[in-house]
Structures are given as structure tokens and as C-alpha cells.
């Protein structure tokens, strides 16, 4: 775990020296499983800053909600840093107005995996050196952190922020792309009927609350396609067509933009799996275009570029 005091010291410095106007990080939640995103604007508040494996949100989602010209400091992990980069590429924020405090990430704990193993009545969670101790109303549990990690984190390739302004703690080794690809390959190995059955089972639990959209840093459209009335792109209700339409189009809109942070799945109140769709697209982009979202702040995603000498005939 990175040194919390070092994070706080850096946040305080940024505010005290006027480098940024706000530091976006986390504060303790009102329940032990849910630390809350927080916006620190003065040095004294920073004492309240926390960071641990339960900080489940991708803070980059707040970037497009803050005024564009505001100088923002942000705590970023590997995936968050890439989301920020992707937003800079899409001109949603200029890099000069950002100061990224990087944290080499040991993975995000999926609180659902805790509740599944230890029950609802969690009183305290302590995390130390990849071991998680859990205090509940009746019992004490010890888990290895790996057992509780969110699925996206288990296949993470870039745990260390790639372009932070400062790194708190030692960089972690890069993950293995072959391992990362395994989940996609396993899914693809199924028959088409099984794949569709899986998709139906997941998508049709949807309640159309759009927590996945709001949790995603790349979903920043002022008007989402599902809210559009003329023309209507998909059925409005919680019908099979409406729910499948939402999940398919949402995933496709993420092509070459998704960093597989998994914030969508963690936000979902219905435990719907979604990253199997976006990860498939991510790996397609790697295989076909050698492109991963957010590795830098300049390279446009393949589907956002167009050149007159495109090798495909439609441009000729």
C-alpha cells in the first residue's frame, strides 16, 4: 500500500502552493465498504483523505463534471491515469490544467466478494500487505487480497500510472497481456448460442439505472443515445430489446476508449457483467490496430481518425 501520509503531504502541497484549486481523491465512507469520492479545496480538509483497496470508483469520471479551465489535482491509479489521458486526447481537459498524483495500484477490492464471503454486517476492513482482515458483527475473517480483487484488476496490464506528475511509492511490474486475454478467449471459445444466452442473462437483469454510464469516465455525452427521443435509438423500457440495446451500444461506444477499469461493473446494482464485452473490443483494438486507450495524451483512437490515403476503398 502506498504511504497515506505521502499522499496527504502532496495533496496539501498542491493546494497550499496554488498548483491546483481542487484535489479529487477519497474520504472515509459512512460504511466501511464504501469510501467516498471527495473534493478537497483547502489544506485542512486533506487530513480526511483516505486511500485503500476499497476505493472503487474511477475518479476520472468527475473530470468532465468540473469546469474545463479549473486546475484539478487527482489521485490516479493505472487505469484512471489512462482514462484521464483518453479524455485529454478527446479534448475534454487540457493536460496543463491537471496535476496527477500517481499511485501504483495493488488492485481494487470488489466489496461484493466481501459480502458474499463474510455477510452483510461488515464493521471494519483492514488491509495490509495483500492481506485483508474483516470484522463483522459475529466473526473475524482473513482473506488474501487477490481473492477479493475485482475481475478487471486480476487481469490488469498497467497497474502503475503511465504519466503521473508524481508517483507515490514504487512502480509495480506490468501485467501480462496473454493472461489478460484469457477471459476474452474463454468467452469466445463458447458456442454462439451459449454466448448469446450469457449475454441475455446478464443484460436482461438491467434496471436501466445507468450507474454503469455515470461511473464511466468515457461516458460524458450531455445527451446519451438512450435519452434521445427523435429519433429513438433503442426501446426506452426494461424490455429485452431495450436492455440488450443499451448494453450493446454502450459497449460499442467504448471501442478504443475503455481502459478496463471495471468501474461500470462495480457500480451496477444488479451485479451485471459488462467488461466481457468491452474487453473483447479492447483486445480487438490491440490485435488489429496495436492500440490501447490512454497510453499517451496524443494518439487518437483508430476509429476517431480518418486519412485521405486510407487503404480501404471507400475513401478512394
Amino acid at each position: 500500500m502506498p504511504d497515506l501520509n505521502a499522499i496527504k503531504a502532496e495533496a496539501k502541497r498542491l493546494l497550499a502552493e496554488g498548483v491546483v484549486e481542487v484535489v479529487v481523491a477519497f474520504k472515509p465512507g459512512d460504511t466501511p465498504l464504501h469510501p467516498q469520492p471527495a473534493f478537497f479545496t483547502n489544506v485542512d480538509e486533506v487530513e480526511n483523505l483516505v486511500y485503500d483497496g476499497l476505493c472503487q470508483n474511477n475518479l476520472a469520471t468527475f473530470l468532465t463534471r468540473l469546469p474545463k479551465t479549473k486546475k484539478v489535482g487527482m489521485l490516479v491509479r493505472g487505469c484512471e491515469n489512462r482514462s484521464v489521458n483518453a479524455l485529454v486526447v478527446e479534448k475534454q481537459k487540457s493536460r496543463e490544467n491537471l496535476y496527477l498524483v500517481g499511485i501504483p495500484c495493488e488492485g481494487i477490492i470488489d466489496w461484493r466478494k466481501i459480502v458474499e464471503r463474510a455477510g452483510e454486517a461488515v464493521l471494519a476492513v483492514n488491509e495490509n500487505n495483500y492481506v485483508v482482515e474483516i470484522e463483522t458483527r459475529d466473526e473475524h475473517f482473513t482473506f488474501s487480497k487477490n481473492e477479493l480483487l475485482h475481475d478487471s484488476c486480476l487481469r490488469c496490464v498497467h497497474p502503475t500510472p503511465l504519466s503521473a506528475d508524481i508517483l507515490i511509492g514504487e512502480a509495480l511490474p506490468e501485467g501480462n497481456l496473454a493472461i489478460a486475454r484469457k477471459a476474452v478467449e474463454e468467452f469466445e471459445a463458447q458456442t454462439i448460442e451459449d454466448k448469446y444466452a450469457w449475454f441475455q442473462k446478464e443484460a436482461e437483469r438491467c434496471i436501466r439505472c445507468y450507474a454503469c454510464r455515470e461511473a464511466c469516465p468515457m461516458c460524458y455525452c450531455t445527451e446519451c443515445f438512450v435519452d434521445h427521443i427523435e429519433p429513438r435509438w433503442t426501446e426506452s423500457g426494461a424490455t429485452p430489446a431495450g436492455m440488450q440495446g443499451w448494453h450493446i451500444v454502450r459497449a460499442f461506444h467504448q471501442t478504443a476508449r475503455c481502459t478496463d477499469c471495471g468501474a461500470c461493473e462495480r457500480a451496477c446494482p444488479m451485479d451485471i457483467k459488462m467488461t466481457y464485452l468491452t474487453e473483447k473490443l479492447n483486445h480487438d483494438m490491440i490485435n488489429k490496430y496495436n492500440f490501447e486507450a490512454g497510453l499517451d495524451t496524443q494518439t487518437l483512437p483508430p476509429f476517431a481518425t480518418v486519412t485521405l490515403d486510407d487503404k480501404n476503398r471507400f475513401m478512394a
Binding site: F39, F62, C209, Y210, R213, E214, S236, G237, A267, P269
Partner: peptide, 22 residues
């Protein structure tokens, strides 16, 4: 401040009853 603006709290609320006619 940290609200995402999603519908989790209200859709899962047993007393929230708003609906939209389409």
C-alpha cells in the same frame, strides 16, 4: 458533490414510484 446522478438509490428504493410514459 460526489453523486454520479444514476438511478440506483431511487430505483432500489421501496417508496420511490415515479414513472415516465413513453
Amino acid at each position: 458533490q460526489s453523486c454520479l446522478g444514476c438511478g440506483v438509490c431511487t430505483f432500489l428504493c421501496p417508496t420511490c414510484f415515479c414513472f415516465d410514459i413513453v
